[in-house]
């Protein structure tokens, strides 16, 4: 797909932007090699530090603009955790805030031209998705013991239906981390690949204005998607956390 040459001289390399390269030299990529992944992950750490540590350093009672950004982000996620996961979910707020801030910063950094989008990699999102899945499942068993399994046994349903529903619930429970992680990676990857495809069309003079307009439009959509996917990832984490905290619905 990536190195197929289309007819008419068009060259599509939509997937090349996702290649992992060592930062220094051209060696093989071992697990410890500093790569472009490392670089952009470090940049997202810096972005998080900038937003949540440097901007609100004034600690003013009447916030400055930068301080408001940090406080809005804090209030937004805090309220989400409180509303969706419940009052007792608040003590897991730092973990959820970590996920949200990382995903938001990585998504927006990935939109910079020439950037490497760390969240477009299934390996990256799968670590977070499965991390949330295992954390929530273990938390459920630790808090409720074996009665956590009642999550799958819907007592509101008629008795003959319950085994079928339990099967469906169990399947959907184990599918959660897959959809949770692939949703984010897929959205990011698809958006960036589409931009690259339109960019390849810009080489043809006749349709290049259309192509550039389309790139602009898709880019605007991607800005929206970058935030919405971070929001959706976070709110789903809160929903899964609520299931672990209150499995009896």
């Amino acid at each position: 797909m990536a190195d197929e040459k289309a007819e008419g001289g068009l060259v599509f390399h939509p997937m090349d932007q996702f290649i992992v390269k060592p930062l220094f030299g051209d060696g093989a990529v071992a697990w410890y090699t500093p790569t472009n992944v490392t670089f952009w992950l470090a940049l997202s750490v810096l972005a998080v530090v900038l937003i949540l540590v440097v901007l609100p350093r004034g600690r003013a009672v009447v916030p400055t603009r930068g301080q408001s950004i940090a406080e809005l982000a804090y209030g937004f996620i805090y309220k989400m955790v409180e509303d969706v996961a419940g009052k007792d979910g608040v003590k897991y707020f730092p973990y959820i805030m970590t996920l949200f801030m990382f995903i938001v910063c990585a998504n927006f950094l990935g939109l910079l031209p020439g950037a490497f989008t760390t969240t477009s990699h299934i390996a990256v999102t799968a670590v977070m998705g499965f991390g949330v899945f295992f954390a929530v499942t273990i938390l459920g068993f630790v808090l409720h013991g074996i009665s956590f399994l009642k999550l799958f046994w819907i007592s509101a349903a008629p008795l003959p239906l319950r085994p079928i529903l339990a099967l469906i619930e169990i399947i959907s429970y184990f599918v959660r981390p897959v959809s949770h992680s692939i949703r984010l990676a897929g959205n990011m990857m698809a958006g960036h690949a589409v931009i690259k495809v339109f960019a390849a069309f810009a080489a043809v003079t006749l349709i290049s204005p259309l192509s550039i307009g389309a790139i602009t439009a898709i880019y605007a959509l991607e800005v929206l998607v970058a935030f919405i996917q971070a929001y959706v990832f976070t709110i789903l984490t809160c929903v899964y956390l609520r299931d672990a905290l209150h499995p009896h619905h």
Binding site: A2, M15, F18, I19, V20, S120, H121, M189
Partner: peptide, 8 residues
Amino acid sequence: GGAVGMPQ
């Protein structure tokens, strides 16, 4: 230097 398949 192009990608083979999906880099992901």
